[in-house]
């Protein structure tokens, strides 16, 4: 029982790191990015190549995965995404689904369709046994890393100058522009950073989520759930949504394995009907 809770929290933390970039892009530019998972996949495959093929230590592979996907995200943002911001939602959906399809096929072509595993150092395998709760060492590491990231993100948003600009831009892009904030640049940096986080999440999560070319399609709905249920007005909303989703999914698969993700989808629809702006959104959302 507690093991499930533990696994669920680890899973949820992972989802949060994967999805928080998406919540910012959605909140800031009202942009529906279905291709977010493709960046996560890029991070995952990047680590696979580095660690498995080139023998780079795991601890070094993670930050490199972050950097590579961040650069990749920034590049895509500046060259392609900028042209689509002002277009209707339908165009955004088509455009990003197109990107997903291309990413899936391209990875299939270069890496093969089979599932990939990152070689995790021996020190991180096995379990601790604390008060009869089996805690996987690797999952513990995930919780630690993601927890630290979350705190760092929260501090960055609330304390730094960039954070306050970002919050201003999310709140009201037009006013922010009027105040002399370069919303485009803020967005570009945030997009790159969010992609980097997704890449890091993909690298960390390859072990738990499984990594194969269909990754962006399989988890797209999960990321979207985090964002729509959590709302886009803060990062605490998506954070709690991720944890709930993680615990719910792990528990659901454990107790009613046959129903698979049915429970999650049902809950999502219920929440969206009940509160279309998200579970944790401010009630005065525009």
């Amino acid at each position: 029982m507690l093991t499930i809770l533990f696994d669920g929290v680890a899973y949820g933390m992972l989802l949060f790191v994967l999805a928080c970039g998406l919540s910012v892009t959605l909140g800031l530019m009202n942009f529906i990015n279905l291709a977010h998972g493709a960046f996560a996949m890029a991070g995952g495959y990047c680590t696979v190549i580095l660690v498995n093929r080139l023998g780079v230590p795991f601890a070094l592979g993670l930050p490199i995965a972050f950097l590579v996907t961040a650069v990749l995200g920034g590049l895509f943002e500046r060259t392609l995404y900028v042209h689509v911001y002002a277009k209707p939602h339908l165009d955004q959906v088509l455009f990003t689904i197109g990107l997903v399809f291309m990413a899936v096929a391209a990875v299939d072509y270069t890496m093969g369709s089979s599932q990939q595993f990152v070689q995790i150092p021996d020190a991180l395998q096995g379990q601790f046994n604390v008060f009869g709760i089996g805690m996987g060492k690797y999952r513990l590491l995930i919780i630690a890393i993601c927890g630290l990231l979350t705190i760092a993100l929260q501090l960055m948003l609330s304390k730094t100058r960039f954070g306050s600009r970002l919050r201003a831009a999310v709140d009201d892009p037009r006013v922010a522009r009027g105040l002399g904030i370069n919303v485009g640049a803020v967005f570009g940096i945030t997009f790159a950073f969010g992609s980097g986080l997704a890449g890091l999440g993909g690298a960390l999560g390859a072990e738990i989520l499984g990594l194969d070319p269909t990754f962006p399609l399989k988890y797209m709905i999960y990321f979207l759930i985090v964002v729509t249920v959590g709302g886009t007005s803060s990062i605490t909303g998506p954070f709690f949504a991720s944890i709930l989703l993680g615990i719910g999914d792990v528990a659901g698969k454990y107790y009613v394995p046959k129903l698979g993700a049915f429970v999650i989808y049902a809950i999502m629809i219920a929440v969206l009907i009940w509160r279309p702006q998200g579970l944790f959104a401010r009630s005065t959302a525009r």
Binding site: L26, I32, H89, L90, V93, I221, L224, I225, T228, K258, L259, G260, A261, F262, Y265, A266, M268, I269, L272, I273, P276
Partner: peptide
């Protein structure tokens, strides 16, 4: 009926995925 484009997207997608799960179950 309710909600934004994104909510509609999610709900329609969710319904078809749910049916897929049921058929699988």
């Amino acid at each position: 009926l309710r909600g934004s484009d994104l909510t509609r997207l999610m709900v329609t997608l969710g319904v078809s995925l749910m049916l897929g799960e049921v058929a699988n179950r």
